[in-house]
Design a protein around this nucleic acid. Structure first.
Length: 280
DNA sequence: ATTTCATCCTGGAGGC
DNA sequence: TGCCTCCAGGATGAAA
């Protein structure tokens, strides 16, 4: 379930807690979550990470990147229900705990994912170019970060014959938005989610860029959005849920014009919008 | 080449 | 209480 702001919050939390510490043990309880070209070698590879230092934990789109002082990088795609918690070994083990990482500073990092849509890669990054290393590992290509978009660069991206909602969820086009922030950004820019992308006027697309960046920035500042599962590594919820304008507000009055928010399905995903404020 | 669709999973909510 | 159906913040290979 985590989208860009939630992954950002997780990366920040993990970076504070474990970067500069060394790995003392690395247990994988559920090998099914592992992906990539070196699957058979992973048991060995994990052992190679013992005594290595974690240098940095950061985010690219919705992926978490855990860099070490070896050439191996750990990449985590959290899927719908993946999360990290910082524990000590005394804490009770939560169901669906798949990875336990013990660190030299006595922090215990646990990766938990009930639905197991999340995936973990161990990739080699000898040239220190994470984008090409991810492609080499068979991961799907990612579009630009939403914060790098401009009115000019979004233009060719919108040259597509599909609803804007569907396009915003396509990580090859723009990487980092998910169902919540796509709906919220479309409301903020007053664009109907079914609008065909290539029919969006330049002034609207310029506004869309600003709206995307505005909702993401605001959500990051509030620690993301928590509905049921999402928690940052400290176990805290995100409070952006309080200021959602359309997502999961079906039937409730639009905060701008009081019209009841409507919900429809667009390419298999529920979409929430104000039928008065948002026009095709 | 582009776009949509079914599918991978568990668990919570709501209807009966 | 239980059983059933539907739904969920994502990504992707196959099909259209």
């Amino acid at each position: 379930m985590p989208e860009l702001p939630e992954v950002e919050s997780i990366a920040t939390g993990l970076d504070r807690q474990i970067s500069q510490a060394t790995i003392t043990s690395f247990d994988i309880h559920q090998p099914l979550i592992l992906r990539g070209p070196y699957q058979a070698a992973w048991k060995k590879k994990v052992k190679l990470l013992i005594d290595k230092r974690i240098t940095r934990v950061y985010r690219r789109a919705k992926r978490l990147i855990i860099a070490t002082d070896s050439t191996t990088v750990i990449i985590v795609q959290l899927g719908m229900t993946g999360k990290f918690l910082i524990n000590t070994s005394a804490d009770a083990m939560e169901k669906h705990t798949h990875i336990i990482l013990k660190m030299s500073n006595n922090k215990e990092i646990r990766y938990i994912d009930p639905r197991r849509f999340g995936k973990v890669w161990f990739i080699d990054n000898p040239n220190d170019c994470i984008e090409s290393a991810m492609l080499d590992a068979g991961m799907t290509q990612l579009g630009p970060e939403p914060f790098d978009l401009t009115a000019k660069t979004i233009h060719p991206i919108l040259n597509a014959n599909r609803p804007i909602k569907s396009l915003l969820l396509d990580q090859i086009k723009i990487a980092g938005l998910g169902n919540i922030y796509a709906d919220e950004a479309l409301f903020d820019s007053k664009i109907h989610p079914l609008t065909i992308s290539n029919r969006i006027r330049p002034e609207q697309s310029a506004k869309l860029v600003k709206s995307i960046q505005k909702v993401l920035r605001k959500s990051i500042s509030l620690g993301g959005t928590t509905f049921r599962d999402y928690k940052n590594p400290y176990g805290d919820i995100g409070t952006f849920v309080k200021i959602l304008k359309v997502y999961q507000r079906t039937g409730q009055p639009c905060k701008r014009c009081k019209t009841p928010i409507e919900q429809i399905k667009i390419t298999g995903r529920s979409s929430h919008f104000c039928p008065t404020c948002q026009v095709k």
